[in-house]
Amino acid sequence: MSLAIPFKPKPSILPGFGLSLGITLTGLSLIVLIPLAALLLRAASADPNEILELVTSARTLAALRLSFGAAFLAALLNAVFGLMIAWLLVRHEFPGKRLVDAAIDLPFALPTAVAGVALAAIYAPNGWIGGLVAPLGVKIAYTPAGVFIAMVFVGMPFVIRTVQPVLAEAETDVEEAAALLGASRMRIVFTVILPGVMPALLTGFVLAFARAIGEYGSVIFIAGNVPMVSEILPLLIVIRLEQFDYAGAAVIATLMLVVAFVLIAAINALQGWTRHRLGDA
């Protein structure tokens, strides 16, 4: 992911390097880079003291913690269950398998607001599941737990869809070899299978994590949006926008951008390392 362009591209028999690079960079600029630059400019136009105050305010920090914390936990849960579901779909036959396989992509297709409303209805104290746990004194909807559940929902397909093809391609003879060498089932899973899918699992984790950080539609319906408790960062941005405080919105957005960038870069570095260990083959 280096943006450095070599001064003299290596001579290649494939034509069109200049053209394709030009088109790619233009597209990327128009859609991603220029809007992000505008965002930074907008944020920079705010008064430095105001920026500092906004960024360090308790409400912003609480929302920051919730957004990234819940997204991280949701991605973690998705990684574990996504791996299990992918395993089930690749290695086992069961009735209705194709239906389950198709249903996994639904969170992609469903408008997230619809998902939010549905989740809120089920997990609210008078809903099916919310009603079950309400007598125990547990509240899911309108708490950080609700935020977490919405984020799990929208992030679920990513891990499954990234891990599934890798598991399908994995040679079972490696597992047989391990078994004949005397390894227990658990040992095979942890020392043979998991390391092989690790890069894909991390990719899926990053995608699910990124998706959860940016999720707005489904979360606000189930979160209850109580300041300092169940308010996510994207909501803070929208609140600023509704007050016509564009600079403030841009500042919070930039904060999100920077934190997300650092975290994702770190995970990508980890992923690069696991890939390197697998070698080029």
């Binding site: 003879d173 004949l180 070698g279």
Partner: peptide, 19 residues
């Protein structure tokens, strides 16, 4: 069990642990 058989098996494509 597979372990008790104590069989040395060399697979056609070697099945080495890549990582």
């Amino acid at each position: 069990s597979l372990r008790e058989r104590r069989i040395g098996f060399v697979f056609q494509h070697y099945a080495l642990f890549k990582h």
